[in-house]
Amino acid sequence: MDVIGNGFLARHLKAVADSHQGVVVAAAGVSAAQHTSPDAFRRETELMRGLVRRCVDSGEKLVFFSTASSGIYAQPGRPGTEDGPVTPATAYGRHKHALERELADRPVDFLILRLGHVVGPDQPAHQLLPALAAQVRSGRVRIFPGARRDLIDVADVISIIDALLGTGANRTTVNIASGCAVPIERIVEHIQHRMGATAEWTHGAPVVTQEVSTERLRGLVPAVASMGFGPGYYRGVLDKYLPWGEPAGSAGTPA
């Protein structure tokens, strides 16, 4: 595969790049849920359109990363599905969903992968775990009541993408998440415990979070059943990656 980009996901994808000829992965887009920059959105739109033109001409398959966060799934009551109603709650979610629709309208092979909150080594400081770890270390954490986060190990994400590409799945959208969204308070409590630190919590406005359905993922990749996804999965992910500490940089907004 041809991995476009050199960021967090792109670096991990290079481990399986030799296994999938004829696949182009757009791993250079907007990765911050807090992003509202029209320039950043425009750059990703232009990148995606250029890659679509390439794949139409070459017959390659395009993999596009979207989000399974509350930016896309913001209707409580039942888990968000790939073919269900979507009401993006943020500028980031609206941008990603617009690109999803544009890609689906083009005559090209594609996979749209809606990712949960991916956790792994050497993440940028604005992403969830390094941002929360930095806030805990600073002694002050901002909590948004009602926020829930579906954490997934980047190693599991790469294994799932590798398997998905092997199935030949095409022109479809797939949620890649654990299926277990965890209250942000439990995540912060575990980070505090793991780091041996206690921070002061301040509270923002309550938010609404929707669970993420993994039914389609499990049907396409049966091996997901052996990845340990469940209510306690997030603790193992945090324990695995917290020892490396947060990267240098300012703390971001966790919820």
Score class of each variant (00 low, 15 high):
Pro107His: 06
Arg114Val: 04
Val118Met: 10
His190Asp: 09
Arg137Trp: 03
Arg94Lys: 15
Val63Ile: 10
Arg78His: 12
Gln127Met: 11
Ala40Phe: 04
Thr90Tyr: 11
Pro183Gly: 13
Gly22Lys: 09
Ser69Val: 12
Ala155Thr: 14
Gly71Cys: 09
Ile72His: 13
Leu165Val: 08
Ser70Tyr: 14
Arg216Trp: 04
Arg101Gly: 13
Gly146Val: 07
Glu102Leu: 14
Gly80Ile: 02
Pro206Lys: 05
Leu164Cys: 06
Gly219Lys: 04
Ile161Phe: 05
Met195Asp: 07
Val141Pro: 01
Thr45Arg: 08
Thr173Asp: 06
Gly252Leu: 02
Ala98Asn: 14
Arg53Leu: 09
Ile158Pro: 05
Leu62Asp: 00
Pro183Asn: 12
Thr36Trp: 01
Arg137Ser: 08
Pro231Gly: 02
Asp150Ser: 07
Gln21Tyr: 04
Ala251Trp: 05
Pro107Asp: 03
Leu99Val: 05
Asn175Pro: 06
Val25Cys: 09
Val212Ser: 01
Gln135Asp: 09
Phe110Val: 03
Phe110His: 09
Ile187Gly: 07
Pro124Asp: 03
Lys61Pro: 05
Glu100Trp: 08
Arg54Asn: 09
Lys240Trp: 04
Tyr234Met: 00
Arg11Gly: 07
Arg94Phe: 06
Leu242Trp: 04
Ala27Tyr: 02
Ile184Glu: 15
Phe64Asp: 11
Thr90Ser: 15
Pro254His: 07
Gln127Thr: 10
Glu82His: 07
Thr90Asp: 07
Leu238Asp: 08
Phe41Trp: 03
Glu82Gln: 14
Asp2Arg: 12
Trp244Cys: 09
Asn6Met: 13
Leu62Lys: 04
Val212Leu: 00
Ala248Cys: 02
Ser37Ala: 06
Leu113Ala: 11
Gln192Ala: 11
Thr90Ile: 08
Leu217Pro: 05
Asp122Gln: 14
Ser159Arg: 15
Ser31Ala: 09
His203Pro: 02
Arg94Val: 14
Leu220Asn: 04
Val224Ala: 10
Arg148Met: 06
